[in-house]
Design a protein around this nucleic acid. Structure first.
Length: 426
RNA sequence: GUGGCUAUAGCUCAGUAGGUUAGAGCACCAGAUUGUGGUUCUGGGUGUCGCGGGUUCGAAUCCCGCUAGCCACCCCA
């Protein structure tokens, strides 16, 4: 009625404040560096995509059922298609679309791509889980060789280890393909059906809807049945079994450690064969997955493009930041220009410009006392301050103070940049 | 989407048998130092007690609703 609440960020959204940004960028840049060193090329794709792009690949998963941010139609009578847009929940589908639409399928294959940016899912927020979250993606499109599965794993592992993360483990599985998975799921259902009444309610529902999920249920009462359940890796068709064996042998050859887990599955339906995930022990159970990926040979066809094999990885930047050892951000050398009395704004601004030839310069135009300005400069971690009152301004000079040593001397404006640059390099 | 816990200053928190001007540490601002920081000293509370309503002479405290955060699910990065 009277006063309204101040506006806050929407639920599940958060800001990355200046203090955090350095760490954030570091994580992102480490990904780019790892990708670049393996010859991956950067690509940017839209955050908004047609809902159909997401629905075709997502199938009947929760992500599509209830977690998609659909964009409200603009109300333009001629543009009813506007009602069919959504914020992307992941990047892979968009990258594959761009691969065809941009003619990358005409280049020599495979094409190695990397991208990163915000994704959106209408989940219940929790620590390490936001409605807008950031992913780093690797995709290798256009070649079925298991060697690319191994390479993608190697690059994503390189990303995580270059950040100095400890306690990261790789989990590996194969979930077969369109040929061997359906018969396996049939077996799995047959195994579980007689046990149905002894499963917990969610699993009773899963039995027919999504039997793979029975395998990673955490409910106590469902545990006893898992051990004897048929394992997908025992029922792979010949080509899938060979591909899986090759991935493992390549990982072994590269001395990449992993744990086989027949219960590892993926949320999105287009995955085939290799699936993998990086876990971090120190993070809570709900957000211990730092990233995951796998082969998605069925995706291109699901989008209406020619059947095209591909493999990829998506890493959660938010969670990697969370898991990263906090490093003290390195403050860049700076000079603060402090006019010691009012009326020197123009001169101070000019001194700032001269300094910027060599290092970033901040000009303090505030009216507070010089000692307050010094305090502020000191707290900001400035390397130098350039103090100037009317008499110095008249001589076109400043008192340049080295904040580390406390040494101070008068320096003419036109020598400032040189003097600071000189003592930086020494 | 389901269930549970929580919400007091910028941060971490104290404050309930309901009682008058709501506190601490850190942070922040100012001064000591009318031209010199990081140490020290002095001063300053910077707050619609998450929001809305109810009970009461009186609510940060009790009740209801809402919102947000956290935790466990669902699912996933």
């Amino acid at each position: 009625m009277s006063r309204s609440q101040p506006i806050r960020a929407a639920r599940g959204m958060r800001d990355i404040l200046p203090e955090q940004v350095a760490l954030w960028r570091g994580v992102e840049m480490a990904g780019e560096a790892a990708a670049r060193s393996y010859g991956y090329q950067e690509i940017e794709v839209p955050i908004i995509e047609p809902v159909a792009l997401i629905e075709r690949v997502g199938g009947d998963t929760d992500v599509v059922r209830k977690e998609i941010y659909r964009i409200q139609s603009h109300g333009d009578a001629s543009g009813e298609r506007e009602g069919h847009l959504a914020l992307r929940p992941e990047a892979t589908a968009g990258v594959v679309r761009a691969y065809f639409q941009g003619g990358l399928n005409q280049l020599s294959q495979p094409v190695r791509l990397t991208t990163s940016g915000p994704m959106f899912r209408h989940d219940r927020p929790q620590a390490g889980r936001y409605r807008q979250f950031y992913q780093f993606d690797l995709e290798v499109i256009g070649d079925p060789s298991p060697a690319y599965d191994a390479e993608v794993i190697e690059v994503s592992r390189q990303w995580l280890s270059s950040l100095g993360l400890a306690g990261v483990s790789l989990v590996l599985n194969s979930i077969g393909d369109g040929r061997c998975r359906p018969p396996y799921l049939q077996r799995l259902k047959e195994y579980y059906r007689p046990l149905k009444t002894r499963l917990h309610p969610d699993c009773q529902r899963r039995l027919e809807e999504n039997p793979l999920r029975l395998l990673d249920c955490k409910e106590e009462q469902c545990q006893p049945f898992k051990a004897a359940a048929p394992r997908i890796t025992d029922h792979l068709c010949q080509p899938c079994a060979e591909a899986f064996a090759e991935v493992r042998s390549l990982l072994d050859g590269a001395a990449i450690e992993y744990r086989l887990d027949a219960h590892l599955v993926r949320g999105l339906d287009y995955y085939t064969r290799t699936v993998f995930e990086f876990e971090h022990a120190a993070l809570g159970g709900a957000q211990n997955a730092l990233g995951g990926g796998g082969r998605y040979d069925g995706l291109a066809a699901a989008l209406g493009y020619p059947d095209t094999p591909a493999v990829g990885f998506a890493g959660g930047i938010d969670r990697v930041v969370l898991a990263s050892p906090l490093s003290e951000p390195v403050k860049p050398a700076q000079v603060w220009v402090l006019p010691a009395e009012p009326g020197l704004e123009a001169e101070a601004a000019r001194v700032g410009r001269l300094c910027r030839a060599e290092i970033p310069a901040v000009v303090d135009f505030s009216r507070r006392s010089l000692s307050a300005k010094m305090r502020a400069a000191g707290r900001a971690g400035s390397r130098w301050v350039a103090i100037m009152a009317a008499d110095e301004a008249q001589r076109q000079a400043v008192q340049l103070r080295d904040m580390r040593s406390g040494d101070q001397r008068e320096v003419p404006w036109d020598q400032l940049a040189v003097v600071m640059a000189g003592s930086l390099s020494s």
